[in-house]
Every structure is written in structure tokens, then in C-alpha cells.
């Protein structure tokens, strides 16, 4: 019976994805131009249709705007194969932090997200995978107990089913509102990934803008293969904190994807338009089928 509901739910989400599909990253606010949306980086007026076609990449300057988790999944998974894992899992309010519950509830009703990460299974070019995709609209994609738990469960699920694991990171780091328990999620996720990798599992980590703090210093940096979208901010400490510490301006391009690749922490910088085919290639290289 619960299987039936789960199937229905998956179907519903799938339909919703197709309908809303790869729309502009954010719903237009009143007063916004209905047809054009300026690129926040180069200022070029780009038609909304073009934003859709490029899945949020500016045709003029190549800026990669954030994608919502469901949009990202839509660009990656074979049609009709999406099945969400632990869709109803959410966190609580361990510190009784003023306003936190209300903020999370508001974000839930505005975005439809239960938490800052969506975990799912599906196929890519016919190959089964487990995917976790973070969504920066939900409190900067920060990791509290629920995010840590969903990532750990996704890794355990992949381990049990012997499937590859792909995580798209987009996060400011640990969630301050859940205090020390957020910090402990770094340990939890790293332990789950380690156990998965030791069992022979393939983990591909995809870093998108931004991947910093407690997320960069845990599961994000543990990939067997690490990919990054162009010009994503990736680092442990935020640029402002570093500038304050060392008392000088940071060089252009510091902590960007290309910088990390140059310093040996990223295998490849992959534009969004090539992400799916790159992942499919890597999956095939690790697949037992010939």
C-alpha cells in the first residue's frame, strides 16, 4: 500500500517537474520584466526562454546561476525514473532558536522543499544511480541534522543496493541554527561516505556555487572523482573571514573552481551543458556491463 502511494507521489513530482520543468531559477516577482531577465553578472538582458534553454547559464558571460534541486534532477535523470528517498524527512529545532521553525516552515511552503537537500534514485542513460542534490534556496543550503541524515541515508542506500552515488553540493556550510548538532553532521556524513567507499562504491562529488564551510570540509571533498561547475566558490573559510584574518585583499579568482583545480583539489571543471554526458561517461567507465 505504501508502495502505491510512493509511486503516485513520484509520478506527481515527475509531472510537476515536466510542467514547471527547467523554468527560470526563481519565480518572477511582481514588477519584474515578464520576458527578459537581466544577467546578474554581465547585465545583459537575456530572454527567459534562453535562460530555460541553457538551464540558467548566461549565453553572454557564461555565469552559472543556481538551479533548484528539482531542476537539477530534471536535467540529469532519465525521464520517468525519478524516485525521491526520504521525502518527508525534516529536522526540528534543537536549540529552540528564535524564529527558526517559522523560517523553515515559510521556506517549505514557498519552495516545496522539506529540507536543503533532495535525495533520489533514478537512471542516467539507463544506469541506476543514487543522487543527492542540495538547494541553496533553503537557508543557503546549510547542513543541519536533516541534511546530514539524508546524505548519510543516501550513502547507506547506495551501499546496500551497490549503486554509484552522485552528490551536487551547494551550501554555505553547517546550519548555525542547529548549533553543535550541525557540526556533528560533518562526522556523520564523512563516516557514511567512508564506509560506502570502502565497500567499493563509486562516489562522484559535484561542487556548485557555493560549496563552503562544513559541507566543503566533509562529504564534498571526499569524492573518488570531484567535478566542479565553472567559477563556483569553493573553500573552507569564507573570503571575508580570510581578508579580515590576513588584512589584505584576496587575488581575483581565489577559491574559484579553476583555482581549486590548479591546486589539485578538483578533477575537472565541467560546464553545466556537459555535466550529464560527463557523468554518464564516468558511470559507464565504472559499470560492469560492457
Amino acid at each position: 500500500m505504501s508502495q502505491l502511494f510512493e509511486n503516485r507521489r513520484a509520478r506527481f513530482l515527475e509531472l510537476r517537474l515536466r510542467r514547471k520543468g527547467s523554468g527560470v531559477p526563481f519565480a518572477p516577482k511582481p514588477g519584474m520584466d515578464p520576458l527578459f531577465d537581466k544577467c546578474p553578472q554581465c547585465g545583459q538582458a537575456v530572454s527567459k526562454l534562453d535562460w530555460q534553454k541553457t538551464t540558467g547559464v548566461c549565453p553572454n558571460c557564461g555565469l552559472h546561476r543556481p538551479l533548484t534541486a528539482y531542476q537539477r534532477l530534471y536535467t540529469l535523470l532519465d525521464s520517468g525514473t525519478f524516485r525521491e528517498l526520504n521525502p518527508t524527512l525534516t529536522g526540528r529545532d534543537p536549540l529552540h532558536f528564535p524564529g527558526y521553525k517559522e523560517k523553515a516552515a515559510g521556506l517549505h511552503s514557498r519552495t516545496g522543499l522539506g529540507e536543503a537537500v533532495v535525495t533520489a534514485t533514478g537512471t542516467m542513460d539507463g544506469m541506476s544511480v543514487v543522487l543527492a542534490v542540495m538547494d541553496s534556496r533553503f537557508l543557503m543550503g546549510s547542513m543541519g541534522v536533516a541534511v546530514g541524515e539524508k546524505i548519510a541515508r543516501a550513502a547507506r542506500y547506495a551501499q546496500k543496493k551497490k549503486l554509484p552515488l552522485i552528490i551536487f553540493c551547494a551550501s554555505g556550510g553547517a546550519r548555525m541554527q542547529e548549533g553543535i548538532l550541525s557540526l556533528m553532521q560533518m562526522a556523520k556524513t564523512a563516516a557514511a561516505i567512508e564506509s560506502f567507499q570502502k565497500s567499493g562504491g563509486l562516489y562522484i562529488s559535484c561542487l556548485t556555487n557555493p560549496t563552503t564551510g562544513g559541507v566543503s570540509a566533509s562529504f564534498a571533498m571526499l569524492g573518488d572523482i570531484t567535478l566542479a561547475e565553472p567559477r563556483a566558490l569553493i573553500g573552507f573559510a569564507g573570503p571575508r573571514v580570510i581578508e579580515q584574518t590576513i588584512g589584505q585583499k584576496l587575488p581575483e579568482g581565489f577559491q574559484r573552481s579553476e583555482f581549486l583545480q590548479e591546486h589539485g583539489f578538483v578533477d575537472a571543471v565541467v560546464p553545466r551543458s556537459e555535466m550529464r554526458e560527463t557523468l554518464v561517461r564516468l558511470l559507464a567507465l565504472h559499470s560492469k556491463r560492457r
Binding site: A187, A191, E194, S218, F219, L222, I242, H263
Partner: peptide, 18 residues
């Protein structure tokens, strides 16, 4: 950052768990 502070910490967490 250049020498991978995030990487160093992440690797420690993973390794300590096992």
C-alpha cells in the same frame, strides 16, 4: 585554503571513522 584546508579536515573525518 590554497593547500586544501577543507580537504585536510574532510579526509581526517573520513579516516577517523574507520
Amino acid at each position: 585554503e590554497e593547500r586544501g584546508q577543507a580537504d585536510a579536515i574532510a579526509q581526517n573525518l573520513a579516516r577517523m571513522s574507520s
